[in-house]
Design a protein around this nucleic acid. Structure first.
Lengths: 195, 195, 195, 195
DNA sequence: TATGAATGAGTTTTCATTCAT
DNA sequence: CATGAATGAAAACTCATTCAT
């Protein structure tokens, strides 16, 4: 193991230790001392890899922002199966660790004022509105409620499912739980409903 | 202005100052000293009203546990108007301070596995299930989906709305936003739907 | 109950509450707020009776300082029965509450630097030395050890017994425990020993 | 002066400064800030050596629990020289700081019923009893008094000496003062007495 | 590069005391 | 006299960060 490899290994150890601790206790509540101790290195070593504790945060940005949902509007309907498949996929991709998701959500709540708009997590609500709008035009979704409100509701349902699942209140996988929730929701606004 | 009124005014000043600062910088990043300075009172005064900085949040957390929702199942239906009225009321009660709610949600996420059950924030999902079950039996809600799933979805929608609203993405009041979301949801599962 | 009586009653309530709390937790650890709460009066009321929290201390000075032991030297021997009777009497007089004695000892330790010599608890070791000296001259006590050392040992034994008894480690009364200890000690230095 | 030596020097400076200040003003009345200032180090440095202000005392409390005395009963007599050597050693180990010892004794009195047994400061009187019992069986100590009472007296004499010495009333070292007191005591119960 | 002792600003919290009502 | 809200100095303790070794 040469020098460069050793460096990488140390870095890795720090990141993994931080990951574990952030999941358990959150970012603010975890001190550099704890991280380095868990990583088995000295406190000073941390600052050879990160100028600042904050810098670590960048390594832990999660994307739970429905990026590709937006692109669904460019595809032909019917949208219900597409959406259901999509949320299942997104949910499964985050299904590895409720704790991880929970701390990501915490970070999302913590940062949503400071870097509002700055970071990439601006929710392109507009795209979702267009999606439902197209669905309504094509006759797939009922028009008793505006596309705006449908989109908002969809978004809220999405985040709420993440929260509930991440706190361990659900017992199935996240993908399934999202799919179930969206099936209830979409079926309710669909023109052809289950009996 | 008598003594009691003065007390209330001071409390209000503290809460408002806290909200403003939490909004700008978040809970952890705001110190009690800053709050009291912004409120124009002495540092010690804060602790005449809250034993702890955290207590500011508990006040809000209490609201979001839907305590009264559970009791709806003991009343006669139809439930849709009752539920809509209830979420509006709960939402309005938290509407004065998005930042405080956001901080409370953060805390909820942070603590939700540490003191699971201890802090009493176990959501009585069972009661909500019974509520929807009763609604289905009485013919108010369709039976194509189990009461279990309806209850979970309702809960997820609720928390998701809190999250989205508290991050400032909604522009109406929380009560209204909750009501809108629940109208979409409940209408979708109702046997008598709007056109 | 007229005005003056009411005042006295309030003062009494404060003192009693303070006494109880000091015994349980010590002086420093007891706050004025706790005292007034226990006394059932408002915080401000305390300062109508005492200019300062410290002023309360004067009400709680204990005498465990062997005042009259000193005068024994002016009486004719043999001293052993006199001393044994005296420590029994002193011990019994303090026997009502280990907690009370314990806090008095604490206060003694706490104050013994600040007001060294100031307060009345200067131990008149000299008088005790003279007592043992007289006892040695009269042939009651052996002369293998100087009166100085006997007096010091006597004093140490006295305080040590108070400490041990007050911490609840002894199970008999303080008077008895003192007498037992002194019997061991005095018998050991006596010219006529038990077999 | 290498790193480890520097560390030791800093620790020493802190302890000495603390002792000096405790001597002048007592434990409660001395703040960590004052200690570090007197020691010429930063406030935070104190907590690199002691997790808590209290820990400064625990260090001393540990010494006065006579842990090793108990093991003497497993060694062959005669016990008098062993005991005298032991108390001298223990006394000398605490001799560097009367003020610290006094504060530790205060703490001992303060906590002795709160965490009775918890903190481990249950004095194993039983072991001391066995020690004197063995001494009596071997003919070293007279049997006119029960081993129980001898042990109690020994313990009381020990603590009393600590108290008196720590309040500055003795002028010799603690080790010497303990030894003197125990010589008086042990000689008095010995079968072969000095003349 | 790794180390870990030193730093000191900053945090929450306590509490004796004041004073307007 | 009694009250209790307001005060603000002071305390213990934390922790990201620096830097000599």
């Amino acid at each position: 193991m040469n020098r460069e490899e050793k460096k990488q290994a140390t870095l890795q150890r720090i990141i993994e230790a931080a990951d574990r601790l952030f999941c358990e206790k959150g970012f603010e509540e975890t001190s550099v001392a704890e991280i380095t101790q868990a990583a088995g290195v000295a406190k000073g070593t941390f600052f050879n890899y990160f100028a600042t504790k904050e810098e670590l945060l960048f390594k832990f940005q999660k994307n739970f922002y429905l990026h590709e949902l937006f692109s669904l509007r460019d595809r032909p309907g019917p949208y219900m199966p597409l959406i259901l498949a999509y949320v299942k996929e997104v949910g499964d991709s985050m299904s590895e660790s409720p704790a991880l998701l929970r701390s990501a959500l915490q970070r999302f709540l913590a940062s949503s004022n400071a870097d509002k708009g700055t970071a990439g997590h601006v929710l392109k609500l507009q795209s979702i509105i267009e999606l439902f709008d197209k669905g309504q035009r094509s006759g797939e979704f009922r028009r008793h409620i505006s596309a705006d409100e449908l989109a908002s509701t969809a978004l809220q349902l999405y985040f709420g499912t993440l929260v509930i699942w991440s706190t361990g209140m659900g017992d199935t996988g996240l993908g399934d739980q999202l799919q179930t929730a969206y099936r209830v929701f979409l079926n309710g606004i669909s023109t052809t409903q289950d009996q």
